[in-house]
Design a protein around this nucleic acid. Structure first.
Length: 369
DNA sequence: AAACGCCGCAACCGCCGAGGT
DNA sequence: AACCTCGGCGGTTGCGGCGTT
């Protein structure tokens, strides 16, 4: 079966449209309307395939097409809709008058996607990148004596790194694996030497009380048990945990099974084949626009909790992250994102466009569902 | 001024589902 | 049921413009 290629290799013209061709197409459509695209080029005197004509018309020549730069509101809408609809460009376009799916798709791929990546936000899931949160989840699971959860997190992390580009620094993964294996093999040791102290320190204490590291006698015992160069790993892990802890990195993060999506941000949708799919409803964290990097706007109480990181966090993400195909730009000490290119500077209203409410007129969830 | 590389966007490609015969 | 046409969609490509060296 299958169907013959629309554009066949029949000597039909391909490539950019000339103004003459545009004029012929516009003239024909204005007189006869669209429909039966296959016969249209012949009737209009065009040496193009119908598909090419249709695309040219819908993406470029249609009179109601709005051209030019996307407005702030349009960007907001696109991002929000994409978080719900995914790459359903036509569905997104249907809610943006004057914009075509192709245009939105291009704009997403060339601007928004890159910007989200730079901010450490996964443009697919609209959640903070897993390497920023899952590793911390593993670490906290470990430190809170929950090796099962830690292993679960770690295995999912490992499988994701095998399928795609590595999202997590392999060295840190190895470190986490090492610690987990120690804990598995010697639970009593770990509970003696880390758990008693660490559970208080990491799970129950306030950040400001967490500067003290666990006693180090465990270190020697660990080395006795583990042949090889593990001391550096322990030191690194301690250092990492100290940073996480001292900086108040998510004191509530010990039990998040879904580290990137809070319950209040879940929207139930029946998009796609699944009848009831939970979809992330993101609420992004604004960065600051002003030159003052400490100027963090007031936010709802649960704003940062929804992302599972603390407002005061300046956990050094870059130190944890490897750099997939598009490496995020470093956060500075106040969580402001540092843009380097002129284009980024030009578009550095990144702060506000990350926090928004979508107009109900644009997004009627009933429509989508 | 020329060469080079990057980026954005228009256009193409291949697949799918709906509907007709 | 099988086959075909058509419109539509998402992913990808390739070219032209622009900035940098």
């Amino acid at each position: 079966m299958g169907r013959a290629p629309c554009c066949d290799k029949n000597g039909l013209k391909k490539g950019p449209w000339t103004t003459e061709e545009d004029a012929l197409l516009v003239d024909y459509v204005q007189k006869h309307g669209t429909g039966n695209w296959r016969n249209l080029p012949k009737n209009a005197g065009l040496e193009r395939c119908g598909k090419s004509c249709r695309l040219r018309w819908t993406n470029y020549l249609r009179p109601d097409i709005k051209r030019g730069r996307f407005s702030f509101e349009e960007e907001e809408t696109i991002i929000q809709l994409h978080s719900i609809l995914g790459n359903k460009w036509s569905a997104i376009a249907a809610r943006l008058p004057g914009r075509t799916d192709n245009e939105i798709k291009n704009y997403w791929n060339t601007h928004i996607r890159k910007r989200l990546l730079k901010m450490g936000i996964d443009p697919v899931t609209h959640a903070p990148r897993i390497d920023l949160l899952d590793l911390s989840s593993i670490l906290s699971s470990y430190m809170c004596n929950n090796p099962a959860a830690a292993l679960l997190n770690l295995s999912s992390l490992l499988s994701s790194t095998q399928q795609q580009q590595p999202l997590v620094n392999p060295e840190l993964l190895r470190l986490a694996t090492n610690l987990l294996s120690i804990k598995q093999e010697n639970p009593e040791l770990c509970s003696q030497n880390y758990n008693l102290h660490d559970q208080n320190q990491l799970c129950n204490s306030q950040p400001q009380n967490s500067q003290v590291l666990p006693p180090l006698q465990s270190h020697d015992q660990l080395q006795d048990l583990i042949q090889g160069d593990f001391s550096a790993d322990v030191a690194k892990m301690k250092q990492l945990m100290q940073v996480i802890n001292a900086e108040g990195y998510s004191p509530n993060m010990t039990n998040f099974n879904c580290p990137t999506v809070s319950q209040e941000n879940m929207v139930h949708s029946n998009l796609g084949a699944d009848h009831q799919t939970a979809v992330c409803q993101p609420s992004y964290v604004p960065c600051t626009t002003s030159s003052d990097p400490t100027n963090i706007p007031d936010l709802p109480e649960n704003y940062f909790q929804s992302l599972n990181y603390n407002r005061s966090s300046d956990f050094s993400f870059d130190s944890v992250m490897s750099t997939p195909y598009s490496s995020p730009t470093a956060l500075n000490s106040s969580g402001t994102y540092i843009n380097s290119s002129t284009e980024d500077e030009k578009e550095s209203y990144c702060s506000d466009w990350l926090k928004f409410e979508i107009p109900e007129s644009v997004l009627d969830i009933n429509d989508i569902m």
